[in-house]
Write a protein that binds this DNA or RNA. Sequence first.
DNA 1: ATCCTATTTAAGATTGATTACAAATTAGGA
DNA 2: TCCTAATTTGTAATCAATCTTAAATAGGAT
Lengths: 160, 160
Amino acid sequence: MKEMTDIHMNEMVEMLQEKLRNAGIKVTHQRLEIFLEVLRAYDHPDADKVFKNVRKRLPTVSLDTVYRTLWLLVEMGILQALGNSREKTRFDVNLDKHHHFTCRLCGEVFDFHNQELSCLNILPVLPDIGKVEQITIEIRGICESCMKKQDQISKKGVSE
Amino acid sequence: MKEMTDIHMNEMVEMLQEKLRNAGIKVTHQRLEIFLEVLRAYDHPDADKVFKNVRKRLPTVSLDTVYRTLWLLVEMGILQALGNSREKTRFDVNLDKHHHFTCRLCGEVFDFHNQELSCLNILPVLPDIGKVEQITIEIRGICESCMKKQDQISKKGVSE
DNA sequence: ATCCTATTTAAGATTGATTACAAATTAGGA
DNA sequence: TCCTAATTTGTAATCAATCTTAAATAGGAT
């Protein structure tokens, strides 16, 4: 799917090294190999698959390092994590079309309605991909109540 | 958030009873109480929260029953499960705007681009809710390759 | 009301992903 | 090169969720 020349890969790894250095984070061969593995992957590998493949080149790498590195790269905006499997499954009465806003601070989930989202016109069949059965739209951010709390804290910090 | 009168609740419970009976599934007070608990909840509770609250009324209910019932109701289309916490987290190089199509049969994830999705105009601040930081759109369905496999199987079944 | 079967309970074991910890190693500046 | 704090390693723990078994319970068809 994703064509990636060796030259392009080298550029990406150099970019990573620079970002790490700028952030004062050590450039270890583990981190580079783990990043390379995700780059190289045609699919979207899970942590265990990355672990197994990196092990072929670094036989002593630990699963822990793979997890820590992957999430580090996500925090740095270099990778993205698909799905929200770290959260517990929540259950909701299946009423009319509505969407969910999850606060990343308190974890609360709020319903909201949005004309544009509800009227999304996704073809029932995506060419060359498959048949669409379900569209999930999840919005994440900070809820009003948590924003107010943050404001109060930052005001306190300034006034002191 | 979700206003639900007692009358409305009764209607919903009757609807559930009818659906259970039509499906030949026994109407137990456990199932009704668990459904009622999700109905009553202003938020979107996880299984453990449902369990703890139902226990207040049915002190002997087991966690196992709560899980079984919640997923039963999801299968019947009466509840929906938020998030995909049953799947492992996958990692992807964070390139340009693209979306993901997950095949529910083989689990493969495919990238695709969609003008309409990429140009979605969500307000950065949802009134009365909070600040938007991230929009995730996940499409689920059956990929081409799995559809072909299914076709072959059904043709085989007919020709025999 | 009776009977058959689905369902629930209880308590524990299991799975599978993810994270925590102490000890050993290493990157990178002085 | 040396030093030190950051990082990694290997193992063990955690956590949600599921399964197991056997016994008890309760729907609902007749």
